[in-house]
């Protein structure tokens, strides 16, 4: 019972990290950019949510009306800069690390290093849950799973079913050939980076919804998020979501059986085994329609 509860709650918690991983995976897979600045965008999303929710009557969920456009534009702008300077995959790692520490310091300067937390009067979600018999599902992570599912279906449909999506996949596989076929990679890249920015806004909002935020949080996400991106398969939207659920569930079960300190051991050993035996990710894409 307890293991089941820990595993299910863990899986839901994992879906929040899957949301963080989604944007990273998209830009990595399709645009060949390892965008560490994505963590900075998520952080910014959290703080904007906090700020808007506490200083306006919007309510935490509705802050998305503001944060999605803001981070969408910011994500697209960062990508335009990468494009303008023809940043390679390796260079993108360094440039985006530079951007990440700048973003963290900016957040730090605006909101101070101290912990921030939405008051219960503003944020009624943090401690709510939905029960099913003896099992309880915390509302913030339930929301994360819901948003995750919607995004996976939405982004998955765009990528698998639309012309833009096919162009994107062609572009992800071979830039030069795709360009030769008249695919406007610049536009597609900007749109995709914008979508990744929007996912950062959602992930940031949900993180703020769960509890306390500090500028340093951005660095604590890196390990788990990368594990999910790798296990899900880089650029694989649905795979990323499943990997998030899996990593969360495994962490929960391991924490329940042994201790939470054993969780990283098991999760990252899984990553190594997956890379050795299933290098294309645990959830290979079904062959797309061409």
């Amino acid at each position: 019972m307890n293991v089941l509860q820990a595993g299910l709650a863990g899986a839901l918690g994992g879906s929040l990290f899957a949301l963080m991983a989604l944007g990273l995976s998209l830009t990595w897979g399709f645009l060949k950019v390892i965008n560490l600045a994505h963590f900075g965008l998520i952080l910014l999303g959290s703080y904007l949510t906090f700020e808007l929710a506490t200083s306006t009557p919007l309510g935490p969920l509705n802050t998305l009306l503001v944060t999605i456009p803001v981070l969408c534009v910011l994500g697209a702008a960062i990508h335009l800069a990468y494009e303008r300077f023809e940043v390679s995959e390796l260079s993108s790692l360094l440039v985006s690390y530079g951007l990440l520490i700048i973003l963290v310091q900016v957040v730090h300067n605006i909101w101070s290093a101290d912990f921030r937390r939405m008051d219960a009067s503003v944020n009624p979600y943090a401690t709510r849950s939905i029960s099913l018999g003896d099992l309880s599902f915390p509302l913030p992570t339930l929301l994360a799973a819901g948003f995750g599912l919607v995004l996976v279906v939405l982004v998955g449909t765009i990528i698998n079913r639309t012309y833009a999506g096919r162009a994107l996949r062609a572009f992800g596989q071979d830039r030069e050939i795709a360009s030769a076929f008249g695919i406007d990679h610049r536009l597609i890249g900007v749109v995709l980076a914008g979508v990744a920015g929007a996912t950062a806004a959602i992930a940031g909002m949900l993180f703020a919804l769960r509890g306390t935020i500090t500028p340093d949080a951005a660095f604590e996400w890196v390990g788990l998020v990368f594990a999910i991106v790798i296990l899900g398969g880089i650029g694989n939207v649905a795979g990323t979501f499943y990997a998030g659920l899996l990593v969360g569930a495994v962490s929960g079960v391991v924490a329940s059986f042994w201790t939470p300190s054993h969780s990283p051991l098991v999760v990252f050993s899984m990553v190594v085994l997956a890379l050795v035996f299933r290098p294309e990710g645990l959830f290979p894409r079904r062959a797309g329609r061409h």
Binding site: A6, G13, E220, S263
Partner: peptide
């Protein structure tokens, strides 16, 4: 008696243990 790693962000499993 549950130890967890510094920088832990996942509390659901520990919460379930404590409730148990």
């Amino acid at each position: 008696n549950i130890p967890y790693p510094p920088g832990n962000t996942e509390w659901d499993a520990i919460a379930a243990e404590v409730r148990q």
